[in-house]
Design a protein around this nucleic acid. Structure first.
Length: 727
RNA sequence: GCGCCCGUAGCUCAGUGGAUAGAGCGUUUGCCUCCGGAGCAAAAGGCCGCAGGUUCGAAUCCUGCCGGGCGUACCA
């Protein structure tokens, strides 16, 4: 959408160029920028600096030659600044003759042009009110874009980390569509793979016949997955803790003799005692399969626990270590908090010492279960389908709540076969080769790169089962060939960054021109104040739990602020405000920054958050509902206050920010925009009475309120956030 | 080793090579007889990690270093 504001900016640039030419400086390429001062609506050019620099360096070459580098620099700066101002004054004088601008001034070497606010405000307000929900929409573009996002795994929990993905992907889709692209929103469900096999193994082995609570079957399945993972990794987890202790705590290493004596008394298996003694004393890695006796760890564990408790006590007694006191090179001693964390891990593992002997057998069983899938065992496939639906039901409930709707649903299970065929094709074409017994693409080699950049991508397991890459190659081919996608976007965690670059390069090697327009919108991990989320350690925050709390809190506040509203309306507002707050929290932070999710912050509806913006909207609605019609013609925007100008200016900037958000794939641009707009509206609201203002001011302000309200709605809409009229 | 990301106010973070680096939270002090106080105003708080370089001009671009995170062939 080209606004009159932008047209006027271009006209100004053209006239400046005419003036430069007439003054003998020649035409230049330069951008116009908004004047950065508050309460002024206009555009500025810094082109005079360009010209001044050229002239100064030419005219003062001899003088500058004789100076030291530093002095020359300072002198140039001084001369350029003066000259830029002189040129700006000449240009300004000429532009004033041409006329058509409210004012033209030369300040600090810039040419500042202010707009005829009366005329442009009239045009702006009329444009916003006639276009309505389409204000800011871009010209239709012929390109088809597919945004693949969400990609949840069935049989696993949907946690707060998944929310960041959904919010980003959905907002990006809305923005791209609004900017004029033909957008397809695609979901890609991870309904098969090792995690599904593990879950189903654990279900069959330990939970068959249990009836999960109906509404929570998806979540229940996620718990089974966690349990499966804990069981299968049990030995490794135990050994990891011992290794961490031996590596990071000298006191633990020093205690090894005493601990081993105790272990020997309880469980005299010489080889194991000797092994533990040697590895711990020298902080060498303990391996989970190096034990002779399955019961050794069970006997050793209480001893470790006792030692940890003692060390925690000792650490608490110890005065806090001063960094200065510590000799150089000496490692930092563990803090009480370290010991508490270790003890927590110790306790969790202590609860399942009976698992240790079974781990190898369980791992075998999982491999057998994988075979049931590979051979499409009917009973197993039926179980898979049934449990898969439990998860999908939960996902759909969440998408419904978030107002997220996909045009295309892909499933990993549906691209396995095509993936295998593709591996064959790539092998035949010589793009892939067998290395160490499995098909891989040696990308750097194929591209002729000397430095390692894309490395090697395995595309099938050596046992013939499919990998994520096998399926992704197939899926990407489908996107290109069946959906005719010109530009494919993946919204995926940053940790898969190299992996996706590899996929793009393989598509390129394979001959797909669209590979050049593949884009990975990566985002950093969502962490908890307690650290990284990990389903195995149980440190996860589930989406539905957070949503429940946030919506309940929103409801409490509405009950407080607006007790008279009908129940149904209150419920709807609570949903709009609560969900808006959650979504905004996910979008207001740059995507390549780690996001620490703090529930307390999510429950606060004050300050820089969605409710602030929604509140500005509700205030605007309060004003507008008190008049019958919004005047749009012949308004008088004269003697404007700075608050009015700032608001008008920002409303006018919406279309170009939409464009920028789309071209940079950055929903954050809109998140910032909409907050700033609300802020400026609140400033205006305080400073400028509307209903009590005398005519013609009253009409102009009413129209401005209506325009700002509409722009708030449009901007929030791009983030998937509703704008309730009352809250 | 190599590669990517982050480092800005006490904390959490915005910031498109341009003019005086901004918000929120927290702290202190004010503002509801006035379109809704989920709001507003004021104060305090900054070697924009460090050092060079490019430029008329650098928080922004380039190089090196320091600190933190992540990735690096059969997990997804």
């Amino acid at each position: 959408m080209v606004t009159t504001f932008q047209t006027e900016e271009r006209r100004a640039a053209a006239l400046i160029n005419d003036a430069l030419e007439a003054l003998g400086y020649g035409r230049r390429e330069f951008d116009m920028r908004a004047i950065p001062f508050t309460g002024v609506w206009g555009t500025s050019a810094s082109v005079c600096y360009q010209i001044a620099t050229e002239q100064v360096t030419a005219e003062h070459a001899a003088e500058l030659e004789g100076l030291s580098k530093k002095e020359a620099k300072r002198r140039t700066q001084e001369l350029v600044r003066q000259r830029a101002q002189e040129i700006a004054e000449q240009v300004a004088a000429r532009l004033r003759e041409v006329g058509g601008f409210a004012s033209v001034e030369a300040t600090n070497g810039y040419i500042n042009i202010t707009f005829d606010t009366d005329r442009f405000s009239n045009e702006l307000v009329r444009a916003v009110l006639t276009h309505g929900k389409d204000y800011g929409r871009g010209e239709p573009k012929s390109e088809r874009v597919m945004v693949e996002y969400s990609q949840p795994n069935t049989h696993k929990a949907f946690h707060i980390g998944h929310l960041r993905n959904v919010c980003l992907g959905n907002a990006l889709s809305r923005i791209m569509r609004f900017a004029g692209f033909d957008v397809l929103e695609a979901n890609y469900i991870g309904d098969i793979g090792l995690h599904v096999i593990k879950t189903l193994w654990c279900y069959q082995r330990f939970h068959r016949g249990e009836e999960p609570p109906r509404e929570q079957r998806g979540r229940w399945l996620g718990e089974i997955y966690t349990e499966a993972d804990q069981r299968l990794n049990y030995r490794q987890d135990v050994v990891d803790l011992l290794n961490d202790l031996a590596r990071n705590d000298p006191a633990f290493r020093e205690a090894v003799d005493r601990m081993m004596k105790e272990l020997w008394r309880a469980h005299p298996v010489g080889e194991d005692v000797a092994y533990l003694l040697g590895q711990i004393a020298h902080a060498r890695e303990i391996k989970p399969d190096a034990f002779y006796d399955d019961a050794t760890i069970a006997h050793f564990w209480p001893i470790v626990g006792k030692q940890l408790t003692q060390m925690l006590e000792a650490a608490r007694q110890r005065p806090p270590q001063q960094t200065a006191e510590r000799a150089a090179g000496e490692p930092e001693l563990p803090t009480p908090a370290d010991y508490e964390a270790w003890l927590e891990r110790w306790e969790r593992l202590a609860a399942h010492l009976d698992w240790w002997p079974h781990v190898p057998e369980w791992q075998r069983e999982v491999r057998q279960t994988f075979q049931l899938w590979e051979t499409k065992d009917p009973a197993f496939v039926a179980l898979w389908k049934e449990t898969r639906d439990w998860s999908l039901e939960e996902f759909n409930r969440i998408y419904e709540q978030l107002d997220v709707h996909f045009d295309v649903w892909f499933y990993e299970s549906e691209v396995e076969e095509l993936g295998r065929q593709i591996v064959q094709e790539l092998l035949e074409k010589g793009i892939a080769e067998i290395s160490d017994g499995l098909p891989v693409v040696k990308i750097d080699e194929k591209l002729g790169l000397e430095k390692e950049t894309y490395r090697t991508l395995p595309i099938l397991r050596s046992d013939g089962t499919t990998l994520y890459s096998t399926k992704d190659l197939a899926l990407t081919k489908i996107k290109f060939e069946q959906y005719h996608v010109d530009r494919a976007i993946w919204v995926v965690d940053v940790r898969q960054s190299l992996y996706l670059q590899q996929i793009f390069k393989v598509m390129e090697l394979w001959g797909f021109a669209q590979a050049a327009k593949c884009y990975h919108l990566s985002y950093e991990t969502v962490m908890l104040p307690t650290g990284a989320m990990s389903s195995r350690s149980g440190n996860v925050v589930l989406y539905e739990d957070v949503a429940d709390r946030v919506l309940r809190r929103a409801r409490e506040i509405i009950d407080e602020k607006n007790p008279a509203l009908p129940d149904e309306l209150k419920e709807r507002i609570a949903r709009d405000v609560g969900l808006g707050s959650m979504k905004y929290g996910m979008l207001m932070r740059d995507n390549n920054r780690v996001l620490v999710f703090d529930i307390e912050e999510a429950l606060s509806f004050e300050g820089h958050a969605a409710p602030y913006i929604q509140y500005a909207h509700a205030r605007a609605c309060r004003i507008l509902e008190k008049v019958d019609t919004i005047p749009t013609e012949g308004l008088h925007f004269v003697d404007l206050t700075p608050e009015e100008i700032n608001l008008i200016q920002h409303v006018a900037a919406f279309p170009s920010d939409v464009e920028r958000a789309a071209s940079e794939y950055k929903p954050l641009v809109i998140a910032n925009y909409v907050y700033e707009l609300a802020k400026r509206f609140n400033d205006f609201y305080r400073a400028c009475p509307v209903l009590q203002a005398p005519e013609p001011q009253r009409s102009a302000r009413l129209a401005l309120v209506a325009a700002a309200r509409q722009t708030l709605v449009n901007g929030l809409g791009l983030l998937g956030i509703a704008a309730p009229e009352i809250m």
